[in-house]
Amino acid sequence: MFYPNSPQTSPQLTQIPYGQQYAMMQRQIQQPYHPFATTEPQARLYPYHYQGPIQQEQGGFITQQSTAASPQYVQMRVTPVDQSIMSGYPNQTANGSSSSSFNYNIHPQQQQQQQQQQQQLRHHAMPVGSVPLQDDRYRKQLIVNYLAPDVTSTDLHELFSRFGELDGARIIYDKQTNMSKGYGFVYFCHAEDAKEAVERMSGYEFHGKWLKVGYSTNPLNIVPSNSSPYVHAGSRGAAG
């Protein structure tokens, strides 16, 4: 039997160049792979992502010199942007860049009308829970959420009447099932009393439920100042 490094198959040491006398086997001759043993700084910083320098080929596509990437890492192929796409944008300079302001050559009167329309939209648009300043009635009506099913309009009136005089209180019921929808409205005579009720009743436990109280901004629920107070009856038909 002959071994790869046996004296019968191995040459004389004098015939082997210096430095390879003890590297006779194939696994010894093959050098191990060192990912950080390279002179390129990109490979030292990113050993798993770097795959060699990027070269520009004919046709405008950018390719990489090395083989496919590892399945664990996804390499994105980048193509140059066609400058003709950006030619339609206004205020574009000769080098292809555009300024931040756009001039669509709008007539001054049209621009003024658009600004007025935007101001009107901001004036009428009102986020949930906010209180408008032009109508004091919005500051007097509250919406009470997360009410228990057994709470009546009379219970709601008695709960909030300790903060001040009320114009009314009612629970909203479903017309088909005649069941409470879980929320109601309270109408105060003074805005200061309503503000105190919002601050003190939010998070209050009532009939096993934690109440959420806020201003009601729905104009359909506003009680006119010259109208008669609501009837605080315990029956659902009268309260709904």
Rank of each mutant, 00 (worst) to 15 (best):
Y22N: 05
L133Q: 05
I16Q: 13
T63Q: 10
H123R: 11
S216E: 00
Q42K: 04
Y89C: 03
A37N: 08
W210T: 02
D150A: 06
N178W: 09
Q26V: 14
Y204E: 03
Y22T: 11
G88E: 06
P17C: 02
I222K: 04
S235G: 08
R162S: 13
R139G: 11
T79N: 05
Q8T: 08
V128I: 10
S161E: 05
Y173T: 07
P4F: 15
R122K: 10
G59S: 08
Y89W: 12
A43F: 14
V198R: 03
H123F: 05
I143G: 00
P53G: 10
S87D: 09
S235W: 03
I54C: 09
G129M: 11
D136E: 07
Q55T: 10
K212A: 02
Q20L: 14
S97M: 03
F2D: 04
V231L: 11
R170P: 01
H107G: 10
P35I: 14
Q64G: 12
Q28F: 12
T38D: 07
T14S: 06
I54E: 04
M24F: 06
M76N: 02
Q55S: 09
R137L: 02
T152Y: 10
Q58W: 15
P149F: 04
K140W: 00
Y73A: 08
E165G: 08
R27K: 03
V128E: 10
P35N: 04
E196Y: 04
F36M: 15
D155Y: 08
Q83Y: 13
N218Q: 01
S70A: 08
P17S: 06
R27P: 14
Y22M: 12
Q30C: 12
Y187P: 00
Q55L: 14
Q110G: 09
G237Y: 01
Q56P: 07
T79L: 14
Y50W: 08
S225N: 12
A233M: 13
V223H: 05
Q118T: 06
P108K: 02
Q30R: 04
G129D: 10
R44H: 14
I29M: 11
Q117C: 07
Y183T: 00
L121W: 08
K209A: 00
H232Y: 08
Y183S: 00
F36Y: 04
T152L: 09
I16P: 06
F102V: 04
G168M: 13
S84P: 13
T38W: 09
Q8I: 13
T154Q: 13
L45A: 12
N218M: 00
F61L: 06
Q8N: 06
K181W: 00
Y183F: 09
A239L: 03
Q64C: 13
S180H: 10
F185N: 00
F160R: 02
Y146T: 00
A191W: 09
P11T: 08
S84I: 15
Y22Q: 06
N105G: 12
P108L: 12
